[in-house]
Design a protein around this nucleic acid. Structure first.
Lengths: 237, 237
DNA sequence: CTAAAATCATGACAATTGTCATATTTGAAA
DNA sequence: TTTCAAATATGACAATTGTCATGATTTTAG
């Protein structure tokens, strides 16, 4: 991870802070973070950290999009989570005192801040409401992971594909036109999210296009018929 | 959940405490827990809590075996986690302030203690090392969940079946004969763990038996050839 | 702008896995 | 024990999904 000269943001005026686990901390604690953090930008495709490395702190996402992914057998990737502004990444391994079990890669031009391990642990020590924030974050991640387990085990690929597209809409939202997914993933990446082969992904997306549920503009995907996708995804409420 | 008259254990002398998230707490805190907890036993098949209900506290497993499972579409169950003595169940939803997203059912005669919500939150408030225990527990669960996601998405059923059997051996150990799995699950339950159809489970177990990897004694499964199962599971290190 | 590489697309086919039907066995209760 | 329901087992078949091959298109680098 090359440390380049980067603009050092100010935590106090950080707009993503209010959406984050740092939303409730005291000004003096924030000051400590501000003095110890450093900021960095990542280009699309750059890796933030890699599976197997040791964490020295955690990363706050200022802006941009990040995928958290794991390597399976025969080098096939699996996306297990996403992050956007206000999210924190690389914290699970750090908190558990383990090596990273996943890698993190930018999906876009992304701005992040790094906060050292000792600062985080000192904060947990001092501020129980911060601990609760972390606990809630982990709980939320665990809930989503267990939901993924359920769906991977029981739903057919077509349903998962529709669900994943709707998930991406929820997660990263739409562009100003109101229909185009903000996040741009390759067919292969979508395959590693849904848990299927790239060819199957291509075929299903074409099918959805034919059925007027989607349309494409280059790599960008437009969501034309959300209710239709909900129906295919077998989501009722 | 019927409150029957149950033997009230003493937390101070609880043998499963040292394996649990309560291993480090101060004697006076332990006393508070002891005064507020209540104990209960569950027979095989009894439910501890159900998906959709509101949690009022968490459950410590004293002895026995518990499965954590979710209901999918068309009423198919999916096992997402197991618990044994020293483990804590029902805490994720409680900590997040949500309804249970899974149910918990005893797989054996099981003894548990209930600790009310407010006692746990007071402990988090007071004792940062307890918070860290909870954080580590959630981190560990999340890591395993993400590993399951990877395997469900990428490994074929046969590999997952072998892996699940080895997992059950790790999780609940063997009987005194050194080969019989301590936990006894129906074929259907194994299917909901592996994420496949019951028939496929039956066929694969028969295949493993034919290949002298397993043998059966009624519902009990004996692990005959662990290296062989590791090979099928595609686990190398 | 052009060449090379990566990505996307499509067809043909095979392997895996699920579903349905139907025994057979086991275990629990009368 | 006897009986009945549940669990296990097995076969036949179909549907889903993955793999391999190949070509078209897009993107990227020089």
């Amino acid at each position: 991870m090359a440390k380049k000269e980067e603009i050092q943001h100010d935590c106090e005026h950080c707009k993503s802070r209010y959406k984050s686990i740092f939303c409730q901390i005291a000004p003096e604690e924030l000051q400590i973070i501000n003095e110890n953090k450093w900021c960095q930008t990542l280009e699309k495709g750059q890796q933030l950290f890699a599976e197997g490395a040791y964490p020295h702190g955690l990363f706050c996402v200022n802006s941009g999009k990040i995928k958290i992914h794991q390597m399976g057998e025969e080098g096939r990737e699996q996306i297990v989570r996403f992050a956007k502004e206000g999210d924190v990444v690389g914290y699970r391994a750090m908190l558990a005192g383990e090596k990273y079990s996943s890698s993190a890669t930018a999906l876009d031009h992304t701005s992040i801040c790094f906060i050292p391990k000792n600062v985080i642990f000192a904060l947990i020590e001092k501020d129980s409401s911060f601990s609760i924030q972390i606990i809630k974050l982990l709980s939320s991640n665990l809930k989503h992971a267990e939901e993924s387990i359920l769906h991977l085990a029981q739903k057919p690929v077509r349903e998962r594909m529709a669900e994943s597209l709707l998930f991406l809409k929820e997660m990263y939202g739409l562009e100003s036109d109101g229909i185009t997914l903000s996040v741009s993933l390759s067919r292969e990446e979508i395959a590693t999210l849904v848990g299927t082969a790239t060819e199957t992904t291509i075929r299903l997306l074409s099918e959805f296009k034919t059925k007027k549920l989607l349309s494409f503009d280059g790599r960008k995907i437009q969501i034309i018929d959300t209710p239709g996708l909900l129906k295919i995804a077998n989501i009722h409420d």
